[in-house]
Design a protein around this nucleic acid. Structure first.
Lengths: 225, 225
DNA sequence: ATAATTATATGAGATATCTCACATTCGAGG
DNA sequence: CCTCGAATGTGAGATATCTCATATAATTAT
């Protein structure tokens, strides 16, 4: 992780301008994580409230048996640590950068002291959570009516970075709720059909071919809400 | 719908006490809806912010083609109209009481004027939305790994009222994301196994037999967080 | 480097679920 | 009362997905 000392620029990708403004306090810092770095560890307390400005990350839960489950993927414009801020975090999770991530962050103690009584911040946070809930409902209802082929296509397009997909099949199968075996069948199909090409860094993604398969699953997903 | 003029009692089923307190303003009223009544109509503007104290309701979306989808079911301790309050409602929905419902409500204009700058209210609302998001994530990940038999059992137990289940098969199939045909197969299985008994008002639910099937899907669901 | 664990792969048979076709019942209007 | 669209049921064949078994490659630990 690296601290970045330049002032926050105002360019936004659909994020509430006001949110960024509020996060921009005298103690705000901008930090950068490299792909694979741990942004938040389940082993430590959550010491900052983050607002992601760039990049993608996965939120994972480690079960008692040591097994790992991906809970969700988050991207630009999303918060990290907001559940801790609200005092409702129940099980600690790991957040791991999937690409280079740039975040604004404010120390949690500061956030709790200052933001807990800041109606503007709390209103923006409520809006964020409300939109996320809507998006999640929509996504869930869409997802469940499609077969793996379509869900996988959408998943790959969502996680691909610079045309390369590098997720582990085991984790993907778990996340998509299908057996590893079946995932592999579908993966092979994609390779045979040229939707993906295997490379040593991962799989080269043919977006043009995958997009029609992913149907309208992603339409609302990427919308800036 | 009937207005009830008694003062709010303080008994709560896991709802944030403070939330009820905040909702208890000089313009708060308690209203009661009978099973089947429309609480919020997609045809009208949402004129009140509701907090459900008792009962169950379904939130539905009517598509362009006239088809109806159930978005979610809500119960005691949940808000209605909060998306409108936050100014992020995109498509109007219908909310229909499944059982007798008792709600606190505050006129939307009042709520928008008073609560938008009320940090206590907004903090409680954020907590509510955050918990709902967690519950939804958990539920979704659980659900997708079970087959219809289990999901249906959980669904019936969740919606049963006084031991009777009365939902329409068409709507249930859509909501659970399975074909009508397959739902009927599973339903017949439940009848054959004595998990359900057909009656003219609906189906009599044998909770003892259904519960083991519903696995741990509902465990966290009902938890109050 | 070796061993141990985890991830990738593939096959074969079972079953959960889908699609389509069709018959029957039910409820709202005319 | 009749009619029509919706909701309920049932059958048969197709296919999406699962389970289990097993082999190899890739990582990680010793």
């Amino acid at each position: 992780m690296e601290r970045i000392h330049k002032r926050t620029s105002a360019q936004s990708e659909g994020i509430n301008e006001s949110t960024i403004g509020i996060m921009n306090t005298e103690v705000t810092e901008t930090v950068r994580f490299l792909s694979g770095e741990t942004i938040i560890s389940s082993q430590h307390s959550v010491d900052y409230l983050y607002l992601m400005r760039q990049g993608k990350a996965k939120i994972c839960l480690t079960h008692e048996n040591g097994k790992l489950s991906i809970i969700e993927f988050i991207g630009s414009g999303e918060y990290l640590g907001e559940l801790t801020f609200l005092g409702i975090e129940t099980q600690p999770k790991d957040v791991i950068a999937l690409t280079e991530c740039i975040c604004l962050r404010v120390p949690m103690t500061y956030a709790m002291k200052q933001f807990s009584s800041d109606a503007d911040f709390l209103f923006a946070l409520s809006q964020y959570l409300g939109k996320k809930l809507m998006r999640r409902s929509w996504f869930q209802s869409k997802m469940q009516s499609y077969e793996l082929k379509n869900r996988l296509a959408a998943h790959i397009l969502l996680l691909e970075t610079d045309g390369i997909y590098r997720e582990k099949h085991t984790e993907t199968a778990e996340y998509l709720g299908v057996s590893y075996r079946h995932l592999l069948y579908t993966f092979k199909e994609f390779l045979d059909d040229g939707f993906l090409v295997k490379a040593k860094q991962g799989y080269l993604v043919n977006r043009e071919k995958l997009e029609p398969l992913s149907a309208d699953i992603l339409v609302k997903q990427n919308q800036s809400y």
